[in-house]
């Protein structure tokens, strides 16, 4: 297989009440004591006007906000940009909420607005809707961020013409602990895409 070179043209992360873009701290919030308020703070900081945001579950909010930070300064994102996301806890944060609503047969009111978020790939649906991305989606569940698999899978998408660019990364939420990292992969950029480089940026 002829291997073209691909690049990490941007990256961002949300961890420990901070938001980073390309390695630089963009936003910090030491005040909020819950994830919902923290996410709302980032939403306000980014000056977003997107009522659908408030309907998302917390996992989607995190992935959505990270994608907004990542593409903030881009003129437009190509419709063929694929999404390759992964995490450890799937949608368990919301799964537990749905389970709570059906735990008691005498008080059994499952909510459609909760149930729809009991699938981790909904994050990619939300990002696709916002940015009109009509492209490849795949959501993988692994014990920890698998930079090798994610980069190889992303490469093959671009290499076979299935996508022009890839937004890949890790969006995990479990019992209020979150860890979010997204990278924009394309044919142009300064940082060459290797599994080591992707892993380094994730661990920054």
């Amino acid at each position: 297989m002829i291997k073209e070179k691909y690049y990490i043209s941007g990256f961002c992360s949300i961890k420990e009440k901070k938001v980073f873009k390309n390695g630089n701290q963009l936003y910090v919030d030491s005040e909020s004591d819950n994830l919902k308020d923290f996410a709302k703070g980032i939403y306000k900081y980014l000056e977003l006007k997107y009522p659908k945001f408030h309907k998302m579950d917390e996992l989607c909010k995190l992935g959505f906000l990270a994608s907004e930070v990542l593409i903030k300064d881009m003129k437009e994102v190509d419709q063929d940009t694929a999404l390759v996301l992964s995490n450890k806890s799937s949608s368990l944060d919301t799964d537990r909420k749905h389970q709570e609503s059906i735990q008691d047969r005498e008080d059994f009111y499952p909510s459609p607005a909760v149930f729809v978020y009991t699938l981790p790939n909904i994050i990619m649906g939300e990002i696709s809707i916002k940015n009109k991305l009509k492209s490849e989606n795949a959501f993988f569940v692994t014990e920890s961020f698998d930079a090798e698999f994610v980069s190889r899978y992303s490469e093959i998408l671009i290499n076979t013409g299935k996508a022009s660019n890839v937004i890949c990364g890790w969006v995990d939420l479990d019992n209020d602990k979150y860890d979010v990292f997204l990278a924009f992969l394309s044919k142009k950029g300064k940082i060459e895409l290797t599994k080591e480089e992707l892993n380094n940026l994730y661990n920054q």
């Binding site: 297989m1 799937s90 790939n121 993988f140 899978y153 093959i156 998408l157």
Partner: peptide, 21 residues
């Protein structure tokens, strides 16, 4: 791979791509 109701078909595509890469 956990991708809602397309998972089983997409998993075959993923497998194909893993072999191709």
């Amino acid at each position: 791979l956990s991708n809602a109701c397309i998972s089983g078909g997409l998993a075959l595509a993923v497998g194909k791509r893993m072999i191709q890469s």
